[in-house]
Write a protein that binds this DNA or RNA. Sequence first.
DNA 1: GGATAATAGTAAGTATAGATACTAAATTGC
DNA 2: GCAATTTAGTATCTATACTTACTATTATCC
Lengths: 148, 148
Amino acid sequence: MMVYKMAGHLIRRLNQISTHVFAQHMQQSGLDLTPVQFAAMDAIAANPGIDQAGVAAKIAYDRATIGGVIDRLLKKGYVTRQVSTQDRRARVLHLSNAGQTLFEDIFPTVQALQDEILPGLNAKERALFMELARKAVAPTSPQGSGDS
Amino acid sequence: MMVYKMAGHLIRRLNQISTHVFAQHMQQSGLDLTPVQFAAMDAIAANPGIDQAGVAAKIAYDRATIGGVIDRLLKKGYVTRQVSTQDRRARVLHLSNAGQTLFEDIFPTVQALQDEILPGLNAKERALFMELARKAVAPTSPQGSGDS
DNA sequence: GGATAATAGTAAGTATAGATACTAAATTGC
DNA sequence: GCAATTTAGTATCTATACTTACTATTATCC
């Protein structure tokens, strides 16, 4: 069982715990929102009128996945999608009123749950982990992604 | 864009880089093997005759996902699956000769690629990251998973 | 030893996650 | 200003990843 000592395996486990903690808190809040859906809403909230490719670039996803994510956010009524008047290829995105309310409501919960993602670490270790993670990710983060 | 400072987002990015690096090296080696498939083969190599639920427990997956992973490894001819003589519910797994050869061939590559997963970190930082990651994951790792 | 509970595997359904390819539209080069 | 390239979105396909539910089988308990 060599995988136990490999970075890839540990990172996958961390991601597994992360999504699990997120799902648990959403369920407790009676909400049906996934981590990607939240990230997409964050990108739209910070950049009203952004298009799907823009969202994908901001949160480091491919266009195909984000297309599906936006479909589901549309179906839930959290975002609006309109053909851009500047560029008829692009779809301009905004949070709906319901989406804005939801995002503001859920934000403190999502912020708070982050500490539970690293259950074996104390505050100091978590800060160190975050610093290393940020540094590790930086080289592959595109300019202006903010992902520094 | 609050997600940039959240552990969940950074961990997802790390996992994304990790799977990307893995896929790249496999392609360069002319092989068609995913991270999970490799992890499953590692579990079977270390525990010949283990069943699917055992593999799932060893590498922290659910039974449904592992069922599909084993299906694909079977189709590629890397593992064998037989109904257990002790327990007719269970399927006993072994690496085939081809699987054993492949696993031994690919192992050094997989070992070596781990450093590329954390491109922004030097050796010392990587070691620290690994230690923190192991510690972070430990509380949620079941007894005997080896995932300490 | 027979009802009950637990377990192995599968099936069905949802949601990422990303590669590839295609259409429509915009940009660039000259 | 038009051909060539690039880009936005979608469609298709494969592979996780997990939940719930179901069947078959085994283990447990009284």
